[in-house]
Write a protein that binds this DNA or RNA. Sequence first.
DNA 1: CTTGGAATGTCAACAAAGCTGACGTATTGT
DNA 2: ACAATACGTCAGCTTTGTTGACATTCCAAG
Lengths: 165, 165
Amino acid sequence: MPEVQGGENLLFLTDEQLRQGIEAMFFAYRGFTADPDRILATMAYGRAHHRAIHFISRSPGTTVNNLLNILGVTKQSLNRVLRTLVEDGLVESRVGTADKRERHLKLTEEGEALERKLSDAQRARMRAAYRAAGPEAVSGFRQVLEAMMDPEMRRRYYTIRESEV
Amino acid sequence: MPEVQGGENLLFLTDEQLRQGIEAMFFAYRGFTADPDRILATMAYGRAHHRAIHFISRSPGTTVNNLLNILGVTKQSLNRVLRTLVEDGLVESRVGTADKRERHLKLTEEGEALERKLSDAQRARMRAAYRAAGPEAVSGFRQVLEAMMDPEMRRRYYTIRESEV
DNA sequence: CTTGGAATGTCAACAAAGCTGACGTATTGT
DNA sequence: ACAATACGTCAGCTTTGTTGACATTCCAAG
C-alpha cells in the first residue's frame, strides 16, 4: 500500500491537483465516447443504444432487470431503447424458460455486427491510450477508476469480470 | 487487487483488457458525477449548469466563445444554461472593455458558494479515490486520461492548467 | 386454490440538454 | 463602406432521462 505521508504528499492532494483530475475525467470521457458517437449519429441510434448493446454483448442471455441495474436507468427509458433494437432486429428478446416472466436478451447477427463496429472504434482509442501511457500507467488508471465507483457499481463491475472467465 | 499484467505484453492489450477498461470508465464516470448530480437535483439545475459553473470558476472573466470551445456544445445550448444562471444571480455577464462584443463571465458570491458546494463533493470523491489508489496510480491515471483525449481537448486541458499557475 | 408480490411491458406526460437553421444587433477590422 | 465576429434569441426537433398509472403474467406462500 502506498506511503501516504512524505514531503511530496503535501502537494499531492491539493485542490488544484484534484481539480486537474476532475477536468481530465471530463475531457477524457468526451474522447472516450467520441468515436462511437460519430458512428451512431449516422443511424437512428444514440449512446443509450450503445450501452444496451455493449452489456447485452457482454452477458448474452441477461435479463431486462439485470440490465436495468447495470445501466441505472428506469425501465421505461431502457424499454424504449430495447424496443427499437428488437424491432430493428439487432436484439432478440426470448421468454425465460425457468421463469417465464423474464426476458433473456441477446444480440442477433446484425446486432453483433454493430457491436463490433462500435467497440472496435472505442477499443482502438483505448488501445492507443494504453500504449501511449504504458503498462504501469494502465494499472494505476484502473485502480483509480475502481476506487471512484460507487460500491454497488464496483461490485457489478467485478461480477461482470468474473463471469467472463 | 487485480493484477493488470505488467511484463507480458502478449496478454496486455487483449480485447478483454480493453473491454474492462471501457467498462471501468463507464462505471467510474457514473460515480464521478453522482455527488454533484444529487445536489443539483434538489435545485432547478443539471449537469450542464455544473459544467458552466466549473469552467467559469476556473477561468474568471472568460468569454462565451471560450466557454463554447471548452464545453463543445452549441451557443444555443450554452445560452439557455447561462441565461438561467445570470437571471438567478449566480453568474455575472459583463461587456468586454477591449472588445465590446465579448461578454466576460464570472461567478457572483452566490455562484461561488454553489461552486464550492458542488466541487467539494466531487473533490471529496476524487480525493478518496486518489488516497485509496496511491500516488503512482494517480500518475498513471492521469497519463491514460490525457492520452484518451482528442488532441484539441488535450491542448485545452493543458492550456487551462498552465494559465492556473 | 387463492392471493400477494415480482418481473415485465405500455401509455401518457414531461424535463434536461443537446442539435439545426435563421435572424438581429453590436462591434471590430480591413 | 463592408465583411466578419461575438453574442443573443426564436422556433422546432431529437435523445434520453424522469413520474405515475395500469395491465399482464407468473411464482410462491398461505
